[in-house]
Design a protein around this nucleic acid. Structure first.
Lengths: 343, 343
DNA sequence: GCTTGATATGTTTACGTCAACATTTTGGCG
DNA sequence: CGCCAAAATGTTGACGTAAACATATCAAGC
């Protein structure tokens, strides 16, 4: 039968019927073999399997999804997932989902500012997904996401925390460790290069930095703000580097720390002899900066795994899952960019 | 009706029938509105749309896929897609697919060495995809991928090139530019830190490096081999740095260049005064290394777009697409890590 | 060999959608 | 007003699968 004759449909592979005919059994028996279930005599099973192999049969997922009402697919909503942290989380999500026999469909949001999230949410309902993982939905607010009711969801750091089951890294602990480490080295104050204002983790890191200083009676200096990119770190760094009073900079992520370090180098200020720098995230390259970057490591892999766990939990027990956050520890990794201030 | 009563299926949203009933039309009319097609009187259309909104109707994608024989989904097969190059390509693939109204499903391969690709290919046939994009399938060979016949495919740099429609960056041109740049600066020879032996792009870069040297009568020195990671660059770099004859290193990617530069710094060899370093890829952070890394930029975004284009081409015209490769230019970006050799 | 209870297999049906075909309504024109 | 083509809407059926139910086959005990 030609492709055209089939009412405009694209050709599909051999069906369960074809296998049944060849194996001399009913379609249902083939289905039983295919789902691995139930009681099928070994001889029959072998015949069916042989027929499957011969025809190159593979179950039609659309039909299965329609029949079962589930797709075996999780949606992954993110923007800028080419960033290291997002990419690592994503990787873990895919792995964890695979362990649960689910695949992952990427849902991109190009410009979250311009109603991108709404559009993504709109498209969502048209997607074939059983659950949704949202990572770093920075500009998204609970209202802006008109999510289908009953769709299992888990979110990572973002404003959505508290509205959905969520997984967060311990921003506070990590930021405290970073600031206190610098103070313990003898720095009179610590400057902060924050992430964008609409980012929840950025706000948390900045607030913690401020509190840590105030707790020891230091009035926090002017806060600098970047957009997570190394380029923004560089352009801010050029300004920061001109202030001789600056001896310690806590950057809200590693990329910006790279930018800052380049700016410092260009201004002839040595790291760590003249200025100490701390990053956040613990990306692979942070270890291979010159000198290696002191940073706060987040376990992105575990974040991804936990996100999937939360979604699968909702998927399996219809019951609602606690909206409390799962908090994962962070860890200060002291390397070569921090030292006591110049005498 | 309760969820349980529905024969164990998970609940699905309102169906086309529900909308039809509420709007007082037939299901087919709702379908027409939903597909945007055909002739529906404005008044009728409005009634249907209102009913859709009221019920929060969204077409069931599984049913649509079953009916149409297509899923509106592309598969993206990769391993280590947390790497910068892969992540950027992926991002472009998702964007381009979205422009074609397709979503992207991630297919991970954990350990390509141990029959990972076969498994991935196996799972593939169980996936609900209309086409497949393979990026950097390093260990995969055409034979190891028992891909469903007739599945539109496009591959990026890998051994699969030549077997499927493919998109590659111009490794040769980029590598030539890098090596010749170093020679032009006056270096007596150029060392090479290659990628893993089973990588096609790595082999191409190494071969081009070798040829460029031989063409000007230089006998290529020992080749060093890493695994793309910064850590491998570092450990190789520690050995390379001990050889005082080394004044120029062409690294097969930027991450390894970072590792090499840290190793050089630890050994007290200055970049670029004592040793020049060139990377490959042009990742964001390369610009913010200290000093900024001279590298060969690849347009990952364009690679991703082209991959999708090739798949969509096959999807639309049943005709087979040329298996010739689409070659995209690369560009040497000279920054701060290259200089004439020490006198 | 016959009954019985278990185990293996077959038959029917519905999942939600949309192409094809059938039917009704609309509007233009004599 | 009535006729007819064109436009709008309705009816039917099939896509491939698997649950529910129905039937057939089997092994064991008497």
């Amino acid at each position: 039968m030609s492709v055209e004759s089939r009412r405009g449909r694209r050709k599909t592979g051999p069906s369960i019927e074809d296998v049944a005919r060849l194996a001399g059994v009913s379609a249902q028996t083939v289905s039983r073999v295919s789902t691995g279930a139930d009681s099928v005599r070994p001889a029959t099973r072998a015949r069916v399997v042989a027929a499957m192999d011969q025809l190159g049969y593979a179950p039609n997922r659309a039909a299965r999804a329609l029949r079962n009402g589930s797709f075996g697919t999780l949606g992954l909503l993110a923007h800028r997932f080419e960033r290291t942290g997002e990419a690592l989380t994503m990787k873990a999500v895919v792995e964890a989902a695979k362990a649960e026999n689910h695949s992952v469909t990427l849902l991109d949001v190009d410009d979250p500012r311009a109603d991108g999230w709404e559009h993504a949410a709109q498209r969502l309902s048209h997607q074939a997904i059983d659950g949704l993982v949202i990572i770093r939905a920075e500009q998204a607010t609970p209202d802006s996401l008109a999510l289908p009711a009953g769709l299992p969801i888990a979110v990572s750091d973002s404003r959505l925390v508290g509205y959905y089951p969520c997984v967060v890294a311990d921003q506070v602990q990590g930021s405290e460790a970073a600031v206190r480490h610098l103070l313990a080295l003898g720095h009179r104050t610590v400057h902060h290069l924050a992430g964008p204002a609409d980012s929840d983790p950025a706000a948390l890191r900045a607030a913690t930095w401020q509190r840590c200083l105030e707790e020891v009676g230091i009035r926090p200096p002017q806060l600098w703000r970047g957009d997570w990119s190394a380029a923004s770190g560089y352009s801010m760094g050029r300004q920061i580097a001109d202030d001789p009073a600056v001896t310690a900079i806590f950057c809200a992520n590693d990329e910006m720390a790279f930018g800052v370090m380049r700016a410092l180098a260009e201004r002839g200020r040595r790291v760590p002899e003249d200025v100490s720098v701390v990053g956040f995230d613990g990306i692979e390259l942070s270890e291979f900066a010159t000198p290696p970057l002191t940073t706060v490591r987040q376990d992105f892999h575990r974040i991804g795994r936990e996100l999937v766990r939360l979604v699968m939990l909702q998927l399996q027990s219809q019951a609602a899952v606690s909206r409390d956050r799962v908090v994962l520890p962070t860890e200060l990794v002291v390397r070569g960019t921090t030292a006591p201030p110049p005498a």
